[in-house]
Design a binder for these strands. Sequence first.
RNA 1: GCCGCCGUAGCUCAGCUAGGUAGAGCGGCUGGCUGUUAACCAGUCGGUCAAAGGUUCAAGUCCUUUCGGCGGCGCCA
Length: 427
Amino acid sequence: MALVKVREVLEECCEGKRVSIRGWVYRKREGKEMIFLLVRDSTAFIQCTVRRSSPAWNVAERLTIESSLTLEGVAKQDKRAPGGYEISVDSISIIGLAEVFPIAKDKSEEFIRDIRHLWLRSRRMNLVMKVRADVLDFAREYFKAQDFIEVSPPMFISAAVEGGSTLFGLKYFDQDLYLTQSSQLYLEILIYSLENVYCIAPSFRAEKSRTIRHLTEYWHIEGEWPFADMNDLMRFEEGLMAHVCQSAADKCKKEFEELGADITKVAQVRAPFPRITYTEAIEKLKTKNPKLTWGDDLGYEDEKALADEFGKPFFVYDYPTAIKAFYCKTYRDKPEVAMSVDMMVPRIGEISTGGAREDDKDMLIKRIREMGLNEKDYDWYLDLRRYGTVPHVGFGMGLERLLTWMLDLENIIDAIPFPRTTRRFYP
RNA sequence: GCCGCCGUAGCUCAGCUAGGUAGAGCGGCUGGCUGUUAACCAGUCGGUCAAAGGUUCAAGUCCUUUCGGCGGCGCCA
């Protein structure tokens, strides 16, 4: 007798055959002559029936919701069963008898979040996590196909990437260190050896943002490579996005369907993306937001207005230097404009930021001073410009923001199994 | 950092406007019924009304403070 996954039974692997499955009780309906069990494993749910005459009856009676078990029986098609297939059970062995499970049909957001460790068993979270794993695979596929090498940067860092305000500090033995906000500076080191590099790693931000698109710990897909310009960067990013979206539309159909996500939107993502400059964006937004003038950062409402107009991913590039980080390269003939680009998607806004990095040592020192930073903190970073400097570009994309958009999730916390927000860090 | 909303049974909520005996559904338990589909029917168990203080003859309800949670803005991916 074969030990099979529930999905295999539903896909007609074993019509009329005796099978064994392992899993957990999802629902139980008890009658005088028949007990209906809805059993789940990692792949799917299936209805299992136990008749009073079955030797498994006494064991089935004791079963509680979420008990783990192994059962044996004959798999068969049955129109009355949800899913179209069921198992007529003749043997059950309980592995772990569950106490009364706290999750019932009525559940609030707050309660679900309090018992995250149990809610992760839900079909919904099961599906999202599968798509997440696939999206990571698709992203790696694309990087590899473009001859990028995956590297492993540190999470403990001694100096800030961006301003210091959003860093999480921590005690490192007797010293003060931080958790990284981005692996960018470390990828910049590695391009001098490996050229095209990428990493997929957590980033930490101590922003007290209370929105459906912020996490304090999120997974960052970052790439960095030399001998490239802004056009190369945008072409790479839209290529990555198109590959991930089309692969998902092709290979995650069932998950999208069960999650009620709009797969058409994802299937339609194709390069090239619309590109507008920051200056053009300001022009476009003039009527909707008259207060907005050149030099202001685009607010979420501004980004949303643009995103609604495009209805699909697009780029905004060439931002004012003054609102960008010290490492952004500026145009030599227009120092007030920085070579920076954001990818935006509807509803979420920014899902990626990238740009050309300043490769001239003296310009970089000037920018560090202008931003009120201490150049001593960036000595190793300046070394990169001292020894064989090279024009280079890079970007960082928020994995959970990408998933939130792709799967139409109501809140970014569902794009990661153990979300960390300003108020949540349990379990 | 600024603004708004929420907190009553294990869970979802009503009760608060206009102060007067703590309520319902779900879940649990007991029984009934049923190829059931978030089953159904009857009975039953279940309460620090987030906490503290105040007003009052009387506070779940009105006032103050605190705690916890959610969301919006700003900032960001």
